[in-house]
Every structure is written in structure tokens, then in C-alpha cells.
Design a protein around this nucleic acid. Structure first.
Lengths: 339, 339
DNA sequence: GCAACTCATGTCATCGATGACATGGATTTT
DNA sequence: AAAATCCATGTCATCGATGACATGAGTTGC
């Protein structure tokens, strides 16, 4: 690897002068500039970013930590962050947190040691207080889920509102027995969606039936199982609200396998091919690209103007995309409240 | 940020001794070790990776450059590489190359300046000779597509074989007019798949009809358009071989929109929900996770044993996953060869 | 003609961690 | 007991780029 010193020696100047030429310092004669530049080309000089950023103290890299890079939602976010970062000559290092909350801290700290210039995180654990000590080293932005036991910028979708709207949509289509399938209420996101669901039922004067609330699934398969259980109930639901896209990918095939496409389905979170399935699936669209963009922009803004104050809490609106999966008219199944 | 020197001063030792403690050097008395360790805890010392890797000369980071991180195929690869890298305390920096081949070199070179420890690339341009000068700085592994004008490790899927098998599968189901939809033959991958397709037709004594070869689409929409054009032909195909998953995502809805699910479809490359669509789509599965794993392993192996020789060319087998989309029996459409 | 100034360029120190080598006290060998 | 060895710890230099400051040649002003 050619260093500045190599170029300097060859061109008969000091390393500092090479540095000057490289950084377009005006205090260099045209003559020297030419000579140095041609030597740089000759020796194929390439700056050592590592040395530079080491000296600066922090690297031009944004760390991204999400539950799963391969999940379409997070993949879209990641891509968008990268595009935004690139415009500012920053790169991204990506990390998957997996689904074991107890590993989060370790994984994050390994990432953080690399002197990243900023961190965007969609956490999975129930406590991010460990990040406090890093907060004045670089900006941290939470996405998708709010930070817990930590004060930091965050951009989350309107979980309550989206769930409310989704449930209301089902109700508007005549459904009275509406189930919700989701993961753990340890996840704040899920908790809010559950609340939105309940609020919508309350609003419509419908009874909150605990037997229709099936939380705790860990993945698509678990959700599929939950779905089967629900449909086997004596007084089965006519509609299902899947509280996240990951699960919808399990629920839909399950309905199909049971030949119950008459069951209405709405998914919190769009997913690939949702629009071409039979029936196409209505969803609450979270606009992951927007999430990625605003998160990246916040990081960049915090880096550019550290003193400036920003709004910490940011709730992004979600949007109901109506497709076919809620159009089925529920079979006559008047809620029988007799035990 | 606490440095080793800070810890050293506080503990009344030299920085070097702190370094020794940190790196488990046996030449430290138990007494000193204890003292230094407790001081490290007290001051919350965290090593500066940047300084370390700067000194070492190359960072513990693997660069990944793929056409699109948000594409499920590449997202799966990325995830797998990350998992493998993490086991060796390496991180990944990810970059999307987009679809403009002329930008590839620039994007890659920006990545490469960051003193990465290895590079995994799925190229989009028709010339990677610019990477030659980096080859002895760090290992480079190509995935999905072979390097052009460069000698380097590569792991590609069996494009010819997969396309051959896919086409043969359609033929076995009675199809005689089989179309192929793909992107540009500038992409070696596509060229090979086209060859596989042709070979299968030849093998079966079927005529290669140029009007059924529709290449040059740029994205899913383009593929959908190509599909419409094909079906509008006087002597339309009864089956379509979509030469990549990205396009299948356009072709399937197109068939659906035209109400032509009788047209058989097979996709080179699995895609999300392909198994629950109506009809579910038969695919050639490329096993992206395997690609990611072997590529990462090769990088790590090259780093561990630089002198060792490895097989450069590596073709990974692909697998036909039979679903429903090829089961339709073609309507009687005896190839009319009268002009 | 000399001070004051400008400007190109050089020298040195620095960022943090760590190899190479030095030092000096304790222990073992002959 | 002198010599050889061992071992804990320290000092210094280094990786590459670049700020802070120095130098010295050339220019301007009075």
C-alpha cells in the first residue's frame, strides 16, 4: 500500500505537502500540485481511511442493528439508510440482533467498539440503559421500537393508531369476532397494537374476548399454529388481525391450508406479494423506506449540528392499504354469550 | 473516552501493562492484574478498535457489495455472511450497487478505501479489472456472478444446469411453446440461463423460436410488460421461464391480471410467498444462505491461511422445487410452423 | 534599506494500541 | 559466589494522516 510518505519521497516534497495537495489546500504552487498529483497517479496512491478516521476519533460509519437484516421490512430500511449515508460519504455496518433479547447488549457493544459515527437500532430487549454511556460519543436513533430506560431519539410507526384503524376496518366489514395474533407484549410495539385493537373493539361496543387474543408466538410457524387453534374454537373468529408482517407470512398459508380464505385477514405491516395473493391481503403499511430515511437524516443532522435540539419522540403515520382479504362477509355467527 | 493511558495513570502502571492485562499476557503478576482490571471497570474502559486495526493495517470488517440489499435473495446472503463473520469477530459493511453498471467501480472503491479485511461482491458491471490492484491487500470473493477480466474466487449457482432443468421440467409437462423472460445478456448469469434454456429445447428437438425470447427488461414491471406482449402473440407460449426471481415477482401478477393462470410458470430463484400463491410457483432454488456461508468461509479461510491454495471456480448446485405452477396441461396448441 | 508581511513548504507532535527492546530485581545454575 | 536466567514492567517507536507551529524566501511599504 502506497502511503503519503511514499508519494512525498518520490515527488521530492514532504508528506504534509502531499496531504495539502490531496485536501485541496490553496497554499500549494500549481507546479508542486501538478508534480504531486502525477506522482499520486503513478504510485496509485489511495488514502488510508483508517488512519484518517483514527485521528479524527470517529469513523464515517453508521451502525445499524435490527432484529433481522433478511426481513423485508428491515432490509428496506437498511437500504434506505445506506443511500442516505452514502450521500454524506458514510458507510453502514449492519448487524442482526436475532430474537434472543439477552444477546442484544453484547452484540451492540461489539458494534459500538468500532468507533461508529452513529447508531440506528431497532431493539429487541427490554432495557437499553446500557447505551447511556455512549450517548455523548455519537448520536443514537431508535426505529420501530422505542428505547426503554433510555432517553434517545426515536422514530416509530403509529402502532396504536394503525391497529385501531385495522380493527375498525374489520368491524366496518361486519366482523364481530376478531382475533389478534402477535408476539410478546414485552415488545412495546406489540403492546401498543394490542391496545389499539382493544380500543377499536371498545369503541364499537364489542366485547374483548381474551380467548381471541393469542400472543406469544415466536415466528411465522408459531403464528400459523395460533391461527389453527383459533379456528378450532367453538365460537371461532371470522377475522384475524395479524400484528406483524412476519406473522402474516405464517397466518396466510395457514388459512389457505385450512381452506378458510373466508376468514378475513389484515396485517400490520405490508409484505412481499401481499398484493397478488388470493385473496390479496389488506395491510397497514409502515413505509419502511421512510423510516430509514428519517432515521438516517436525524443521525446526519445530529452529526452536523450537535448543539441543535431536535424532537426526540417521532411517530410516523401508517396507512391502510385495502385489498381483498377483508371483503368476505362474515358468516352468521352472532356472538353467543351463553357460557 | 477512556484510553489505556488513562487506566494506566490511574492504576499507577504503564500503558503497556494495561495492554498486557487486556490481552491476557501471562507476564503480569496477579496483583497488578487485579488492580488494572478493577481500574478498567471503574473507568469503564473500552478498547478503541480503530486504533488497533489501524496499527494492524487492516480492519476486521468484511465488505459486501450486492445489487440490492433489499432484494430477498441478497438480503438472505447478507444475513448469512454476517452470522459467519461474527463468529470470527468480524463485522460487515454493506453496499448496494444499484442497477447502473457504470457506478460500480466508484462505489466499490469507496468501500475499499476503508481498509476492509475482505470483499464479497455480486457485481453488475462487465469488467472488474479495476479490482486487480486490491487483490493482494485482501481476499475478494465473487458471488452469484463470475468476475470479468479478473481472476478471483467465485461461487456461482449452476445457471446453465438450473435453466436446463427448469425448461426440461416444462417440456416434461407437455409444453412445447416455452418463453423465456430475462434481463440483459450482458449479465453472464442471464446468458448462461438462456443457454440452458436453449439446450433443453434442442435436447427435446424443439425449435428455438426467437419470438419467445424476451430479454432486456430492467425490473419487475418490465417483465410484466414482456409477459403481456408474449401472450398477445398469435402463437402465444403456454409456459414461461422467468430467468430471475426479481422478474417473477412481476410476471406472476401479470398472468393473474390477464387471468391466464393456465400459463405455466417456473422461476429461476425462489421468492417470498412463492409457495402460497395461487397457483404456487415452481422454482429453481438457489439457496442464498448457502451462497453466503461458503463465500464468508472462503474469505475467512483466505485470511487465516493466505498461502493455501483454493479452488477458484465454484459452482453450487441448484434444486428444482416443484409446486403447482407447471401442472396445467397446455391447451391444444400444436406448434404451427406455417409462416 | 529594513521592517512587516505573505506564502510555500517543512518539522514535529498527535491520535491509541502494541511490537521490539531495555531494565533491574529475584531466582536458579554451576 | 559469580554467572546465567527468568520475569514483571517500563520506554520508545510505529502505524498514516494532519493540525499547530516553524522556517525561510520573496514581496511590499515607508
Amino acid at each position: 500500500m502506497t502511503t503519503m510518505q511514499d508519494v512525498a519521497t518520490r515527488a521530492g516534497v514532504s508528506a504534509k505537502t502531499v496531504s495539502r495537495v490531496f485536501n485541496d489546500d490553496p497554499h500549494v504552487t500549481e507546479d508542486t500540485r501538478q508534480r504531486v498529483q502525477s506522482t499520486m497517479r503513478e504510485l496509485k496512491y489511495v488514502p488510508n481511511m483508517l488512519a484518517r478516521t483514527f485521528r479524527e476519533g470517529k469513523s464515517a460509519v453508521i451502525g445499524i442493528a435490527v432484529p433481522d437484516v433478511a426481513d423485508p421490512f428491515f432490509a428496506a430500511i437498511t437500504k434506505e439508510i445506506e443511500l442516505a449515508a452514502r450521500e454524506h460519504d458514510m458507510a453502514i455496518v449492519v448487524t442482526s440482533l436475532g430474537d434472543n433479547p439477552s444477546l442484544e447488549q453484547n452484540i451492540i457493544e461489539t458494534t459500538v467498539r468500532r468507533q461508529i459515527g452513529g447508531l440506528i437500532i431497532a431493539p429487541i430487549a427490554a432495557d437499553q440503559s446500557y447505551l447511556a454511556r455512549w450517548q455523548d460519543s455519537f448520536p443514537i436513533v431508535f426505529i420501530d421500537r422505542t428505547p426503554i430506560k433510555l432517553n434517545a431519539d426515536y422514530f416509530v410507526e403509529d402502532d396504536f393508531g394503525g391497529a385501531f384503524e385495522a380493527t375498525q376496518h374489520l368491524i366496518a366489514h361486519g366482523h364481530r369476532r376478531i382475533a389478534i395474533v402477535g408476539d410478546s407484549t414485552d415488545v412495546p410495539t406489540t403492546r401498543l397494537r394490542l391496545e389499539g385493537y382493544r380500543a377499536a373493539l371498545d369503541d364499537a361496543g364489542l366485547r374483548n374476548d381474551e380467548e381471541l387474543v393469542v400472543l406469544g408466538s415466536r415466528n411465522a410457524d408459531g403464528a400459523a399454529q395460533a391461527c389453527k387453534t383459533l379456528l378450532a374454537l367453538p365460537d371461532a373468529p371470522t377475522a384475524i388481525f395479524s400484528s406483524n408482517a412476519r406473522f402474516s407470512i405464517g397466518v396466510f398459508p395457514a388459512l389457505q391450508a385450512l381452506n378458510r380464505t373466508d376468514i378475513a385477514l389484515i396485517s400490520y405491516g405490508d409484505f412481499p406479494m401481499a398484493d397478488v395473493l388470493q385473496p390479496s391481503v389488506s395491510v397497514i403499511d409502515q413505509d419502511p423506506r421512510r423510516v430509514g430515511r428519517v432515521a438516517a437524516e436525524r443521525i446526519l443532522a445530529r452529526l452536523a449540528t450537535p448543539a441543535k435540539r431536535f424532537r426526540r419522540k417521532n411517530v410516523l403515520p401508517v396507512r391502510l392499504i385495502e385489498r381483498q382479504s377483508c371483503q368476505s362477509v362474515p358468516a352468521l355467527s352472532a356472538p353467543v354469550d351463553v357460557p
